[in-house]
Amino acid sequence: MARWEPNARERLQAAALELFEERGYDRTTVGDIAARADLTERTFFRYFTDKREVLFSGTEEFEKLIVSGVASAPETMSPLDVVVAALAASSPFFETRRATARKRQALIAAHAELRERELIKFTRLAGTLVASLRERGVAEPTAALLARTGMTLFQNAYERWIEDGKKRDLAHHMHASLAELRLLTAEPASAKPRRKASSGSAGG
């Protein structure tokens, strides 16, 4: 029977981030990570399929939060607001990762294989949103559009959250991104049709 190692996942994640920063992602091996965490490679592979997955742990938990958030949203809420509310509800999940979020994001930006993995993750999350919206009766094309819009808003909010010196939570930035989108897509007042002049107006 495998020996239980306390906090093994967290120790491996912390060790990996330290080594990625010290040696570089490409020069760090699974063996290096396990050794730094004072664990075996066998223990590493119990939690992660490869060193890349250390940076993407928690995707399944995030998906569950999305599904729960969409399902629990009030029936009267618009589909776009449902998507934003579901993504914003994940704020506590990300708050526990704030300390390492910037380092993680820098690593992903610097490596093509990690950017590809991030893209796959977002595609999977968008699919989860589509399926959840379909459960609420939203038509397929509309659900797909809303899911892609929601994930774009999430990415925008996540980047703002990482850089926020005031340390406001992700939910704040999700709602701020939605408000900005609505402002940018609002019909200008000058584009609204003018009222016709009454027949009794001057100059007739």
Rank of each mutant, 00 (worst) to 15 (best):
I108S: 09
E5I: 15
S91C: 05
F154V: 07
W4R: 15
V130N: 02
L146M: 06
V83F: 01
P79V: 07
F154H: 09
S90W: 00
D32W: 03
E63H: 11
G165S: 01
A126C: 01
A71M: 02
L119E: 11
A14V: 07
T96C: 04
L114P: 04
R194L: 15
R136A: 06
A88W: 02
E75Q: 14
H111I: 05
S90A: 15
S78Q: 13
A202P: 14
F56A: 08
R136W: 05
M174S: 04
S68E: 15
D32N: 10
T142Q: 15
H173K: 00
S190P: 02
A147K: 03
T142V: 09
A110L: 00
T28A: 04
A2S: 10
A37W: 01
L129Q: 01
A88L: 07
L114I: 01
F48A: 10
T185G: 05
R9M: 15
E61N: 08
T185D: 08
G137L: 10
R98K: 15
E187V: 15
A89T: 00
S57F: 09
A197M: 11
A139Q: 14
L146C: 03
T128Y: 08
A16M: 06
P6M: 03
E180A: 11
V130C: 01
S190A: 15
F20C: 03
N7A: 12
G127D: 12
A131G: 05
F20P: 00
E21R: 14
G127Y: 10
G31M: 04
E135K: 11
A71Q: 13
I108R: 09
R117C: 01
G150R: 02
G137K: 11
F62M: 11
G24R: 08
A71V: 05
T43N: 12
G204R: 13
A34E: 06
A16H: 03
G150H: 05
A186E: 15
A110E: 11
S72Y: 04
E116S: 09
R27G: 09
R52I: 07
R134F: 04
L170V: 06
E140A: 13
T28D: 01
E116N: 09
F45H: 15
A86G: 10
E41T: 13
E159A: 15
M1D: 02
N7E: 14
F44L: 08
K64L: 14
R136G: 06
G31Y: 08
